[in-house]
């Protein structure tokens, strides 16, 4: 894994200013999960319309740069998607989204946000 790629300026910029960070009071779907390995914890709040299309999504949490950046990018990606489309997102797509090589141990950090989103939408990861 190349360090300069993993902790690039762009990556750290997202970590410093994550998109969609916060809560939604009147969320239709919400969930939380943690990664026992490192204690990362993520809460997801989703608002959907009558067509089960995501109109808004926010997250809160505490964790490493990889999990936080993944949550930022993934919440960006799913906004406007239908629940069924969200459930079809594959783990590989999340890793691809991050655009950085993630080592085998840290993959769990990268995939935690996806797991929480799936949990919120009613499907276990």
């Amino acid at each position: 894994m190349s360090f300069d790629e993993l902790y690039s300026e762009i990556f750290m910029e997202i970590y410093d200013h994550p998109h969609n960070f916060g809560t939604i009071e009147s969320a239709d779907l919400k969930s939380e999960d943690s990664n026992p390995l490192c204690g990362d914890k993520i809460n997801i709040y989703i608002k959907i319309d009558e067509n089960r299309r995501i109109t808004d999504v926010k997250f809160t949490g505490k964790g490493c740069a990889i999990s936080m950046v993944s949550a930022s990018m993934l919440t960006d990606k799913i906004k406007g998607m239908r629940i069924e489309e969200v459930l079809a997102i594959k783990p590989e797509e999340v890793i691809e989204l991050l655009k950085v090589p993630v080592g085998s141990t840290r993959v769990k950090c990268a995939l935690l946000p996806l797991a929480v989103i799936r949990k919120a939408t009613g499907i276990n990861p």
């Binding site: 894994m1 360090f3 993993l6 902790y7 390995l37 490192c38 204690g39 990362d40 964790g63 490493c64 740069a65 990889i66 080592g103 840290r106 950090c109």
Partner: peptide, 21 residues
């Protein structure tokens, strides 16, 4: 910095340390 990020950055210098609980 989260301890796991610390360990990853140490790893980039060849230093093996542990991070977690």
């Amino acid at each position: 910095a989260h301890a796991h990020d610390v360990a990853s950055i140490f790893d980039s210098l060849g230093i093996a340390i542990r991070a977690g609980h």
